[in-house]
Amino acid sequence: MKINSIGLSTEQSKTLAGDLNTLLANFQTYYQNLRGIHWNIKGRSFFDLHAKFEELYTDANLKVDMVAERILTLGGTPLHTFDDYTAASKVPVGRNVSKDEAAIRLIVDSLRELLLIERHILDASDEAGDEGTNAMMSDFITEQEKTVWMMKAWLAEQV
């Protein structure tokens, strides 16, 4: 087995970088969704949701950078074109979402997709002994599960 300069299997690192690129593409779609609902939200919940969506897109932007840098650390090249993101993304695209409930549902649906990808990466990084990627996914999952819970509470629904 060939080992890279950070002590991981080069083959497993390549696979993880590919999985992280899938996550990156999905995070970029999620980020754009958040920007769109931040800009377009209307109604009585405007002030609260406008601020919350800004908080979420700021966090998503940080995570995009973290994922891209982890891909580079593993020896990969981060995707960086909209065509690449569109081709690899499973997160639903929100177009002209301005109603509060639709916006919250878009966030929940988007996070469900991100969590599925992150759980897959968590398992793969554990198998590869890649603590850096594993810790990142664990942190992302913990934060996003809480966000889903809060969004579902806003919708008055069970997780």
Rank of each mutant, 00 (worst) to 15 (best):
A68Y: 12
E131A: 12
N96Q: 06
V97T: 04
I37T: 01
L74R: 10
W39T: 07
R119N: 15
W39L: 02
M66K: 13
E127F: 12
E101C: 06
N33G: 13
L114W: 13
L56E: 00
I104A: 06
G75Q: 08
D59R: 08
F82L: 11
N33V: 11
R119C: 14
F46L: 03
R95Y: 06
H120G: 10
A124V: 09
E131P: 04
I37Q: 00
A102G: 10
Y31C: 07
K63N: 08
P78F: 14
K52V: 05
V91D: 08
H50D: 02
Y85C: 02
T133D: 11
D130Y: 00
T58G: 04
A102W: 03
F46W: 06
Y85A: 09
E69N: 06
R70N: 13
E127R: 05
A128L: 12
R105Q: 11
K42Y: 09
A68G: 15
I41P: 01
L111M: 09
L111A: 14
N61K: 06
F46C: 02
E54M: 08
D59F: 00
G76D: 15
P78Q: 11
R35W: 07
L106Y: 07
S45F: 06
R35C: 00
E69A: 05
T81N: 15
P92H: 06
F46R: 04
V91C: 07
N96S: 01
L62M: 00
T81I: 11
K90C: 05
Y57E: 08
L49S: 02
P92A: 04
T86F: 05
D100K: 09
S98E: 10
L62N: 10
G76I: 04
F47Q: 06
E55R: 03
A51H: 08
I71L: 15
V108W: 00
L114E: 08
L122T: 04
R70L: 11
R105T: 09
H38D: 02
G132L: 01
Q32C: 09
A135I: 03
E55L: 02
F53W: 03
D65V: 14
L34E: 02
T81K: 14
T133Q: 09
N61Q: 05
L49N: 06
A60F: 07
G129I: 05
Y85I: 02
D130F: 01
N40H: 04
V93A: 10
Y57P: 02
K52I: 04
D48C: 02
D123A: 15
D126K: 07
L79T: 13
R119H: 12
N33T: 05
A124F: 11
I121E: 07
F46A: 07
H50Y: 13
W39S: 00
L111H: 07
T58K: 03
W39C: 00
H80R: 11
V67C: 01
T73D: 14
A87N: 10
A135K: 09
E54C: 01
L79E: 13
L79S: 07
E69P: 03
L122Q: 15
L116Y: 11
A60M: 07
R95K: 08
D123S: 15
S98A: 04
